[in-house]
């Protein structure tokens, strides 16, 4: 393979990692509070509130039901307003975060649902406030599950980031589209796909190992 293609691929890897990691982090900044909110306002939870639960639920489902490629295009004006441009890796982060945050919120919600209701009841019986239950019980107890969720989020966001190549985003996706698809360079396409698989595998493997290390439920 020629030198320039290799450089292109290396750059693609860097951009992909940059987009994925930064977007995931930002998606969690928005998604965790959203997920906690939709969880605690649900019926029979610590801050039951039907109206708030309905509103957050609808927002999450609304964004999640729009296909990412369409969201990407629809958000172009917003992206330009936030990032100043619509082209390149940094600009891609904007739609990635918008698309991933509701997804993360659902992941967080399902992790919190795994926390034993009895433990929450015990915390209440000890006089904990709702905030104390969230910070001292719900989030720490759900931690392993939250990290499992984050590996799923990383893989999904990586997949989304590859699609951004169609509208001028960077990364391995753009390499695959521009060289593998438009120029019929099948070998480049193949290499990018393999690289993407390896990255997802790495995220998954490292994530699971980390979770096993921090989860105290299985320690003997």
């Amino acid at each position: 393979m020629r030198q320039e293609i290799i450089e292109l691929l290396l750059l693609g890897i860097g951009e992909t990692l940059y987009m994925t990691l930064v977007s995931t982090a930002a998606a969690y900044v928005l998604g965790v509070p959203l997920g906690v909110l939709v969880y605690i306002t649900d019926s029979d939870r610590i801050c039951e509130n039907r109206v708030l639960n309905l509103i957050t639920g609808v927002i999450i489902n609304l964004v999640r039901s729009v296909p990412f490629l369409i969201l990407l295009v629809a958000l172009l004006p917003f992206t330009r307003w936030v990032a100043g441009t619509t082209i390149g890796s940094t600009a891609t982060i904007v739609p990635l975060v918008v698309a991933a945050a509701p997804f993360v919120a659902r992941l967080v919600e399902s992790s919190l649902k795994e926390v034993d209701a009895g433990v929450i009841e015990a915390a209440k019986a000890m006089g904990s406030s709702p905030a104390q239950i969230i910070y001292k019980v719900l989030l720490p107890e759900a931690k392993p599950s939250l990290f499992v969720g984050s590996t799923i989020a990383l893989a999904t966001i990586l997949g989304y980031s590859a699609m951004a190549g169609f509208v001028g985003g960077g990364g391995l996706g753009a390499v695959a589209i521009n060289y593998g698809y438009y120029r019929y360079q099948t070998n480049v396409m193949l290499v990018t796909v393999i690289l993407l698989v390896i990255i997802v595998q790495l995220f998954q493997e490292v994530g699971i190992r980390f979770v096993n290390k921090i989860d105290k439920r299985t320690k003997q």
């Binding site: 009895g118 433990v119 015990a122 915390a123 904990s128 001292k136 439920r217």
Partner: peptide, 28 residues
């Protein structure tokens, strides 16, 4: 906080050590 409670299923915090579990109501 003036009424302790124990349960059939114990309801300990699984991610905290024994000592940290006992500290919980004091933190609260």
């Amino acid at each position: 906080q003036k009424m302790g409670m124990i349960f059939q299923q114990f309801n300990l915090l699984a991610q905290r050590t024994v000592l940290e579990n006992i500290c919980y109501p004091l933190e609260v």
